[in-house]
C-alpha cells in the first residue's frame, strides 16, 4: 500500500488561501478551527515564499505518542486520524505537534476545550465510512470516494499536492529539474542554445 503525503511546492504557492477556504467550506469547520493555514516568510520583502500547512501525517507521530487516551491512530497508508468520541480535549497533542495541526473548539463546560479536530486527509474518522455520523464529526471522506483531498484539488497553481508519496515526490522532482537550479540553472544555453 502506498503512503499518503502532502507536499507544498513553495515556488508555486501564492498565498491565496484557496486551500484554507476549500477545507473550511467543504468540511463545515467551526469558526476558530483551522485544519489548514498558509504561512509566509519574508512577507513584503524580496524572496517572499508561502507554504500551506495542515497535519503532516507524520511517521512516528508525536501526537500519537503523547495522547493520554490513545484517541489518535495511524492508518496503514500513513493517514493520522483522531477519534473524537475518545478524545478528552486535554491539548497535549497540540503541545507535541511542531506544525500546530491539532485544533480545539471551545464552548465546553467551565470554558474547557472540546475534542480535538485536525486535518483528516479527507479520510473521515473511525466511524463507518461515508456514514452521516462520520460526516458530522469529521467532514467528507473523499479518500473513500477515490478523490484527492479538497485542498489539493482546489489549489489554483497546483502548488499543494496530495497522494501517494512516491508519485508526489516524482512530480515535484520533475518540476524542480525543469525549473532548473544548480547545474541546471538558467543561463545562456537555456535561453539561446538551439536544441
Amino acid at each position: 500500500m502506498g503512503r499518503m503525503r502532502f507536499l507544498c511546492d513553495v515556488e508555486r504557492c501564492i498565498d491565496c488561501n484557496g486551500c484554507v477556504v476549500a477545507c473550511k467550506e467543504g468540511h463545515h469547520i467551526p469558526v476558530g478551527v483551522n485544519r489548514r493555514r498558509v504561512i509566509s516568510i519574508n512577507q513584503g520583502e524580496m524572496g517572499e515564499k508561502s507554504i500551506s500547512v495542515a497535519c503532516m501525517h507524520c511517521s512516528d507521530a508525536p501526537c500519537i505518542a503523547v495522547c493520554p487516551v490513545d484517541a489518535i491512530y495511524q492508518r496503514d497508508d500513513g493517514i493520522v486520524l483522531v477519534s473524537k468520541k475518545t478524545c478528552i480535549g486535554c491539548g497535549y497533542c497540540f503541545m507535541a505537534c511542531p506544525f500546530g495541526a491539532p485544533q480545539f473548539p471551545g464552548g465546553q463546560v467551565f470554558g474547557a476545550r472540546g475534542a480535538m479536530d485536525k486535518c483528516t486527509f479527507c479520510a473521515g474518522g473511525p466511524e463507518k465510512t461515508n456514514s452521516p455520523a462520520e460526516k458530522k464529526l469529521y467532514g467528507q471522506n473523499r479518500i473513500a470516494e477515490g478523490k484527492v483531498p479538497l485542498c489539493a484539488a482546489m489549489c489554483a497553481t497546483k502548488a499543494l499536492m496530495a497522494g501517494d508519496a512516491d508519485v508526489v515526490a516524482d512530480i515535484y522532482r520533475e518540476r524542480v529539474f525543469t525549473r532548473g537550479s544548480g547545474v541546471n540553472a538558467w543561463g545562456w544555453d537555456k535561453a539561446y542554445k538551439k536544441k
Binding site: P68, V69, A71, C87, I88, Q108, A115
Partner: peptide, 8 residues
Amino acid sequence: FGGGAVIM
C-alpha cells in the same frame, strides 16, 4: 478507562 465522555 478508555477515554471519552467520562474522562472529559
